[in-house]
Amino acid sequence: MDDLLLYIYDVVKDQHFDKIKSLSKKIKVTESMDSFVLKGFFNAEASNDALNSLLSAWKNSTCTSEELAALILGASYASSKQREHESTELVWTGPDSNLFPVRRSEQVLLDIINSAKETLFIVSFVLVNIPNVEQALKQAIARGVQVRMLLESEDKESSSVFLKTLERLHTNIPNIQLYIWPRENREKYQSGFARVHAKCAVADRRGAFITSANLTEAALDRNIEMGINIEGGSIPADICSQLNSMINSKEIFPYTSSVFVNKNIPELTDKNTINLDDASKALEEGEPVRIEFENQKTGCKDVRKFIKCDSNEGKPKAGTLVIISFDGKLYLGNYRWNKQQNITDGQQYYLVTVKGFGPTEKIKISEDEWLDFVPLAMEVI
């Protein structure tokens, strides 16, 4: 009997009550041995597979036509009432397997945005220019919706992706409230720090879209991505509560230029933070030093902790945030290098590229100098 009930559930769980009422009427006037006439009742292949499993189980049971009709009708009614409180939909972006309807991630996201009447909160690693989404956000704000968004503001390569997003959104959607997770609030580990990796959108505590897709054109329309669209129930409200709790506990902050620096660390005070120009002398003691410098991409001061590099341990790995002292000049940024050769004289040299907080700079170091070359200091994360 338990198997039969399970097959009944598989049949009714995604069907409209009226469709199951029609199926129930047919079952009521059909004997189990003649159940083959019911095959193909649904339009979707997956639904018919579930029905075929139920019909096979029915043949091996003592359940009468009237009993099965009543069971399937009752299960469908209970399921439909439950869906009034919470409904879920699998959202698939990718190749169409014809197992269930495909709704692109962008379609569902736009539905969530357009349904918002009072509040909308979106979380994503990035937001790369998607005109349809950004226009929908602008329209939501115009109709009085409070629109908030949490994006990843840090990048291991200190790229300008977040800053370009800021500039675009503040120009196109000036009333959107952006939030960031300051680096000093994140758990650190050997190779870096924790990231904003969740992707979700929640409207009015009633609808939520949880997805693997970032807010990029490829993710929303071309990649293989999967998510769940939820209407009603407790989950959308729980997501809102979690995000609001992070705001109230000051884990995440509304974006301002003063927050987008590492100055909220308790021990960062004027007396133990030095200027980049004075770094060489301060680093001689071999202890970590907090160094302040001009971040040209944010337009404000930034503070990072550095320690003097030990020449006995070799060069820090490529991509590390370093301070380089070369030919009387200090360079600060993420560095990489490659070996090159002069066309004219065939002499080999290393070209070191430093980028991250201002214009990209290149340093040419001869092959002989490269043997002893190490940056002055590297970031301590």
Results as ranks from 00 to 15, higher is better:
327 D>H: 08
81 K>R: 15
293 F>D: 12
215 L>M: 00
56 S>Q: 00
212 S>N: 13
311 S>N: 13
8 I>Y: 05
53 S>I: 07
105 S>G: 00
124 S>Y: 00
130 I>A: 10
177 Q>L: 10
139 Q>V: 09
173 I>Q: 01
286 G>C: 02
304 R>V: 06
5 L>M: 07
264 N>P: 03
169 L>I: 13
196 V>T: 09
81 K>T: 14
250 K>S: 09
373 F>M: 01
223 N>T: 04
31 E>V: 15
157 E>F: 10
328 G>D: 14
40 G>H: 05
303 V>S: 03
379 E>P: 02
155 D>I: 07
65 S>N: 10
244 N>D: 14
278 D>K: 06
203 A>E: 13
264 N>M: 01
257 S>M: 12
123 V>Q: 08
154 E>A: 09
112 I>K: 02
261 V>W: 01
323 I>M: 00
323 I>Y: 09
65 S>L: 01
86 E>C: 02
337 W>M: 12
352 V>M: 07
91 V>H: 13
371 L>K: 01
311 S>F: 02
207 G>E: 00
221 D>Y: 14
293 F>W: 11
284 E>H: 03
23 L>H: 06
172 N>A: 04
238 D>Q: 14
259 V>Y: 13
191 S>T: 15
76 S>A: 04
307 I>F: 11
59 K>D: 05
330 L>C: 10
376 L>D: 03
71 L>P: 03
365 I>R: 02
138 K>R: 11
66 E>S: 04
306 F>D: 09
350 Y>A: 03
322 V>L: 14
273 T>K: 13
161 V>H: 10
40 G>P: 08
44 A>F: 02
4 L>T: 04
233 G>D: 13
120 L>K: 03
301 K>P: 05
356 G>Q: 08
256 T>L: 13
364 K>I: 07
285 E>M: 09
25 K>D: 12
316 P>K: 06
260 F>P: 05
379 E>Q: 04
304 R>W: 09
304 R>P: 11
294 E>L: 07
124 S>A: 06
18 D>G: 06
70 A>W: 03
145 V>K: 07
349 Y>C: 05
339 K>N: 05
356 G>K: 02
305 K>F: 01
213 A>S: 02
172 N>Y: 10
94 G>M: 12
94 G>A: 15
200 C>M: 04
122 I>S: 15
123 V>D: 09
1 M>K: 00
335 Y>P: 05
63 C>A: 00
334 N>Y: 06
55 L>Q: 12
32 S>P: 00
41 F>T: 06
123 V>S: 11
303 V>A: 12
80 S>F: 12
105 S>C: 03
66 E>D: 07
146 Q>E: 07
264 N>L: 07
11 V>I: 12
324 I>T: 03
280 S>W: 08
354 V>S: 06
125 F>T: 02
339 K>Y: 14
250 K>F: 04
139 Q>C: 10
71 L>F: 08
216 T>A: 05
160 S>N: 09
269 T>D: 09
235 I>Q: 12
131 P>S: 13
287 E>F: 15
32 S>A: 15
361 E>M: 14
100 F>V: 04
218 A>W: 08
221 D>I: 11
316 P>E: 03
1 M>Y: 12
193 F>V: 15
343 I>K: 12
170 H>N: 06
130 I>F: 09
53 S>P: 03
230 I>T: 04
220 L>M: 10
209 F>A: 10
